[in-house]
Design a protein around this nucleic acid. Sequence first.
DNA 1: CGGAATCCTGAACGATACTG
DNA 2: CAGTATCGTTCAGGATTCCG
Lengths: 132, 132
Amino acid sequence: MQQGQELASLYVERWNAASGLPGPCPVRDVLDKIGDKWSMLLVMTLASGPKRFNRLHRDIPDISQKMLTQTLRDLQRDGLVARQVFDTKPPAVEYRLTPLGHSLIVPFGHLIEWANESIGRIEASRLHFDAD
Amino acid sequence: MQQGQELASLYVERWNAASGLPGPCPVRDVLDKIGDKWSMLLVMTLASGPKRFNRLHRDIPDISQKMLTQTLRDLQRDGLVARQVFDTKPPAVEYRLTPLGHSLIVPFGHLIEWANESIGRIEASRLHFDAD
DNA sequence: CGGAATCCTGAACGATACTG
DNA sequence: CAGTATCGTTCAGGATTCCG
């Protein structure tokens, strides 16, 4: 708790528009990506190595072509994913994590661990809450 | 990278409806909360200690009454926040993190750290990407 | 003081069809 | 193969008003 305290205020202060700090909250900026439907799933799917467009689509059948394209472009824009085009026929396009993208795996992994450890208590709490 | 690999596949596999696993992805379940606009800000704001409703509203001026109420109820439902009513006049209601809520601060803190360390490179990447 | 109820808008997302 | 373009829907979230 004490450990998180400084980080908390950093986050909380930068969030508030009233803080007078310039620009949007950087934490929020990152969290929006994490919260969106496909970004982190894509990052984790690419963690095992580079993959091509249709391979990613096969690995994640639920995603639409549109969102796959769009999410990959956003990740590329943020510098988390690199896109490489091979001039073959037909063209091949490979996506891989950048070092920055790789560096996200560790902290994000902590969150995944927490989620897996905590989901039981969370669901139990929901059951209890909804019982009333 | 190797470290995140097992967690990644746990996440990725549970995500896919095609996996045949029962129920929704627990990681996604948690990530949706983390991604939503106010949950984590509220958790971090409560990290410094219990606070009452209007105190929270003053600390986070941007949030609407509706979302403050709704987010607090969701956090309570998930067992991350406890709600205590004092029978005074007028009534006072205090919100505090549960132990489960506190346990989220550490892994979430790693993400905040990553965001603060990485935002520079991310924004630089965006500038470069948008230049074309 | 601490909410609940209602209405409304924008943005995210999906489905479908077409292309170099 | 790897996208683009367009349309339609859903829904989180804000604004406003009212209540015990």
